[in-house]
Design a protein around this nucleic acid. Structure first.
Lengths: 340, 340
DNA sequence: CCTGGCACTCGACTGTAGCGAGTGCCAGTC
DNA sequence: GACTGGCACTCGCTACAGTCGAGTGCCAGG
């Protein structure tokens, strides 16, 4: 484990050069491009150690060195400072996000912005229902046996579900139902609603009981239990940058993974602490994404977190820059949400 | 233009073999695999004519022939019958689409189904607002100066917009506004609403005038004029089938095009007649998609068309099969919509 | 502990040769 | 006049040999 400062400097230089050039970097080029203060031969010795420890590797004998996933990990954890954003990027973020009217609008703008700034695939999760509370519930009669249940959450999300009633319900009863569910549920977090909904059914007048039961079923099953998460995606075209060198030749597994909402949620949805999470190559649990890295973080108004966002790219990525961008965008989005 | 029956048969054989094998097809292989009743030499003469007319070409001297876009066009127009669906496919469609509850659900299932059956990129347009009529408008107070406008269309689409009021509006007035807009607009097609909305503003009581004006602005601008279209996409991973032989080496332009909603709408949205539309390679107006073909059609309950759906793939695609699948799926979706 | 020197490795590139699929053309046949 | 068999030709593909050079590991000396 004898990684003295110079060896770390060599690793940092290798990572930076490789990220920039996309080509294995050799000892001679290294000393030329960085002020290491030693000769190529010395660097070679250091490289030998770094390779033995698993931080770099040679694609083939007599090629330069390339960082391993482990090497990137060390780089991210100990060798890089988060790059401050350029004023241009800062301006781009502001320009992109002002003028958003809708939650939909915010999410779409955000995901495109992220993709554009990082030049990678961007993923943004809509504010999670599980972390939202009910602002209003609306019942719209579609026919005598059908209601449209519209739920508006404090995070701006609006969800609707069709409710098929067991038997016709008069308009007056619909009004009663609407009043009851709103009285009971408005203001409470969705994760806390089950007992309330239960009580609602038990307390409701006999002639409303039937309708209230199916209504509660819809509420619980489709909105609370399998809490519908929504995801926006952009920038898949960026996967083709760098030819087929990244992603070991085939985009197939990546594209397949990106089509699975569950996978995407796993990637960016589980960020509990407010820190940025970086998953490098192999660290990723999803097999299809073993050749990719993910940088993700949570966002939300103020200190609370209501959803996640992040980007996915080749392991060979500009981590400091990407981390900075992801964080900055998350912060701006949070502020935007706080305003509403 | 001397294309006698045998030359057409040769063209058909070339298209079928090339689609199946993905390799340029030569005269000898042709007579072996198809009952043409003539010798390779004769076929060669026919091929020479077909090439002169621009229906096929040679990638390089001494390779077999490959159909040109023009060749595919002739094939689609005159040389192929729509393939009947296999019972398995038929069953797959039914199994996939029953149990859909939501419009969202229907669209998502449809797009995935299409992608799976055709093994290509599938695109489904949500029922167009322009072709929908208003079933109900709901106004939900968010704060004293903010309303959430929820529009439910007869096609099942639900759209919401935040309305920022110029000054606080009491709850009673919101009730009035809700009643007024519903009385006036429910049942009318969105494309016919502008004069109605105009009248609504002019006829409304003075104390409602201000709120009604901004409300009408939101209605007209965001829902009617730039009629918000929504699109679902699936199966991008299928682009990687056939290695990089299709799409002349780079997926980049295709992926870029697929990220633009406008482009997608252009692809599948303009289907006015109920017939299936096939765009082959160069016929496509979007430069990025000159290497691809699109098969699209309209769908809707009964005979009316409310939206489009289709698939995108390499020009080297199984046109008869794809056309059949796209049509069948569109028909099923139409039936599904008619039930609601 | 660092450095310069040196032998070695091995991928990338180049040029050559042989193979074979496929063609175009032509003379002969029905 | 249409079709066919035969034949010379083209040219991409593959294999192989040779060269080049970037990069390495190792070692002796400062």
């Amino acid at each position: 484990m004898g990684l003295d400062d110079r060896k770390l400097a060599v690793l940092r230089a290798i990572v930076e050069d490789y990220v920039a050039t996309q080509e294995p970097v050799g000892s001679k080029a290294l000393v030329e491009r960085h002020q290491l203060g030693v000769s190529p031969a010395t660097v070679r010795n250091d490289m030998a150690v770094l390779e033995e420890e698993g931080y770099i590797r040679q694609p083939h004998t007599s090629a330069g060195r390339v960082p391993t996933d482990r090497g990137y990990r060390l780089f991210v954890d100990r060798l890089s400072r988060v790059k401050p954003l350029s004023p241009a990027e800062r301006r781009a973020i502001e320009r992109f996000l002002v003028g958003a009217v809708d939650l939909d609008d915010v999410v779409h703008r955000t995901v495109r912005l992220l993709a554009q700034l990082t030049r990678q695939v961007a993923v943004v999760q809509y504010p999670s229902l599980a972390r939202s509370s009910v602002r209003h519930l609306e019942l719209v009669p579609i026919s005598t046996t059908r209601l449209m249940l519209v739920m508006i959450a404090d995070t701006g999300r609006v969800e609707q579900r069709l409710v098929e009633l067991p038997k016709p319900v008069p308009a007056a009863d619909v009004t009663d139902l609407r009043r009851l569910v709103n009285e009971k549920l408005v203001g409470s977090r969705l994760s806390e609603t089950p007992p309330l909904v239960q009580a609602l059914v038990e307390e409701s007048a006999p002639h409303l009981r039937g309708a209230m039961t199916t209504l509660s079923t819809v509420l619980l099953e489709t909105l609370v239990e399998r809490h519908e998460e929504r995801i926006a995606l952009a920038g898949t075209a960026n996967l083709t940058r760098g030819g087929l060198l990244d992603f070991q030749g085939s985009l197939r597994p990546i594209l397949e993974a990106l089509e699975e909402e569950v996978v995407l949620l796993k990637l960016i949805g589980e960020t509990e602490p407010s820190t940025t999470r970086v998953l490098i190559g192999d660290e990723n649990e999803i097999d299809n994404l073993r050749a990719a890295s993910v940088v993700s973080t949570g966002y939300g108004p103020g200190a609370t977190i209501v959803g996640g966002l992040g980007v996915l790219g080749p392991t060979r990525m500009d981590y400091p820059g990407t981390i900075a961008t992801v964080r900055a965008v998350a912060r701006y989005v949070g502020e935007l949400l706080a305003q509403n």
